[in-house]
Design a protein around this nucleic acid. Structure first.
Lengths: 325, 325
DNA sequence: TTCAGCGATCAGATTAATTTATCGGCCATG
DNA sequence: CATGGCCGATAAATTAATCTGATCGCTGAA
């Protein structure tokens, strides 16, 4: 009979490709793991791993078995999570991913409120790009993530939290007055400074500009890859170009006197920020509560963004955030 | 740490509502099961069952835990199935459901071929209505089922096998010549004899007639509920009315000289027969092979129906088989 | 009151899993 | 072609998990 223990050991073995290290990861000795894998192979009637000198690789069948095993483990972990957290939202450990263009601006708003409202919550944060976050949510490494919708994965569910409009950040000495919204034509794509590849914000900005206009044939855009929005703003301040920046970040970056932020004429581009989690997650109650906290913080911070009143996030007539990360 | 054993015992307990009988079903003694349930409650920190004199009922949390536990068990059973059957399609035990309006006509065609081509296959058949079959597939009681598409459940996948057109069965002394297709107007809905409630064929026939015409306000139709198509044909033969009958059944029922079958004018109503199974089923290779056998048998039997060349089954301009069973 | 049904509990036996120690194959070195 | 290191398999002893059979205590019915 197959056991969860065998699947756990197999999962570790698949991950480490090494009996000794897999055993260590499972906090058992190597023979213990060897025997469990052996038992598994015997009960399934298939060689699961190829033991070759210098490396241990899964067989084809083994790969599929490990994949299914991970599904089983995730489901059982969910079961335990459900039982342990049922009835008391936002207590205990909760691992949350946040995209880099959001984390430094949103977290300072919500962490104090969370701490105050849910002192029993032990939040573990991770900052990564959307692609990574989605993978980690699906594999159960993360419970949920704050990112720009849509996440575009049918295994995932989302709660829309707020709309985050884009502003055009330009040097303070730009001739255009701050009061007048500029048309997208005001954006010289070749002077656009963006985050490095892989950031959803970069893709959204590019998508918006692409639909807005295409000044020359070159895929162009001075797409120097900064790793943080603050860096991007520094470059704008230094007169190296301009950028599209989400309102929630502009609030903070506005401190720098050498830049100013111009609003854009409708249809204003923007992104829809949401809380994403596995459809089968056992902690939906937590996510509802967490979402409420975020909405509350964003609202009371006097920020323009407001929670939308609909389920499926829009992303129509705005940046095409359908592109992966 | 939670174990599959505990989940198996919990599943049995949930099903039987009785420690003793659940234990018996698991082939262990009652104390063994009691202790495992006790351990489970201890590790989860929740009372899972309410022990009250005379009955054992799950708590709210227990119900959800049992549901999730069943998911885990299904996934682990799938893993084992995958490992055991991988590489040798159509061997070993395979449980297959078939709807009643199809089983007696299709099975005689395919069983000999299956026996010949796959002697190692031990097919276990069950005849039930669509609703029941779908439930059993989802819970893992059945591996797959032959029924009229669409099954309409997002957890299920289907392979379309063939189109089965409906014919109008009338008494042999009906004045209309067999050679000329009749219009749907030729169907007097008030004289329609159908299978009893719950059969998809009944719903399809009613749906087709409803779109075809509505002679009077009465929901009408002489919908005496026969439990088999043979019974229905007997009644038609006896002059009690007429019926819509799938071509595959007409082939057989044609033996009765007292009825004849009129073709219908386009858009000809019909049903799309398919093989349905869980999306995550470990035996998709088997289903492909089984589907091929069915297609082959249906074709070579000189039957009109042919395999369609498209994935999503039609059900357009024909009986509305979207209604449940 | 007494009894039958049912689940909990206990002690002891059994089975499964783990650890420590060791073996043997396979490379890379010298 | 020896030698030592790495790595997984195996053996024996130990520990932990699980089971059985006997029994207890509770509850509702006779």
């Amino acid at each position: 009979m197959v056991t969860l223990r065998q699947l756990r050991y197999l999962s570790a073995l698949a991950k480490h490709g090494h009996f000794g290290r897999a055993a260590e990861a499972c906090a058992v000795t190597q023979p213990a793991l060897s025997m469990q894998i052996g038992d598994l192979e015997r009960t399934l009637g298939v060689k699961v791993v190829e033991r070759r000198p210098g490396e241990v690789i899964l067989t084809d069948a083994g790969r599929e078995i490990a994949r299914r095993g991970d599904d089983v483990l995730t489901a059982s972990r969910d079961l335990v999570d459900f039982a342990r957290h049922r009835g008391k939202p936002l207590t205990g450990r909760l691992t949350l991913g946040v995209i880099p263009s959001l984390a430094p601006y949103l977290l300072p708003k919500i962490l104090p409120a969370l701490q105050r409202g849910f002192p029993e919550l032990r939040l573990e944060l991770r900052e990564s790009q959307t692609r990574q976050l989605v993978g980690d949510i699906k594999s159960g490494v993360l419970d949920a993530a704050l990112l720009a919708l849509p996440a575009g994965d049918s295994d995932l569910d989302a709660i829309a939290l707020f709309e985050d409009l884009f502003l055009l950040a330009v040097p303070a000495d730009d001739p255009r007055p701050e009061a007048v919204p500029v048309a997208v034509d005001g954006i010289d794509q070749s002077r656009l400074i963006l985050l490095e590849d892989g950031h959803c914000l970069r893709d959204q900005a590019l998508a918006f500009c692409a639909t807005a206009r295409r000044r020359d044939g070159s895929a162009g855009a001075m797409t120097f890859g900064a790793s943080s929005l603050t860096t991007v703003i520094q470059m704008v301040a230094g007169g190296y170009g301009m950028t599209l920046i989400p309102q929630i970040a502009a609030e903070v970056e506005r401190r720098d006197q050498r830049v100013k932020f111009l609003r854009l004429r409708p249809p204003q581009p923007g992104r829809s920020i949401g809380l994403v989690f596995r459809k089968t997650s056992p902690r939906k109650a937590d996510f509802g509560a967490l979402g409420d906290v975020v909405k509350g913080c964003v609202e009371e911070s006097g920020c323009r963004p407001v929670p939308p009143g609909r389920k499926p996030p829009p992303a129509q007539n705005r940046a095409d955030s359908a592109s992966e990360p």
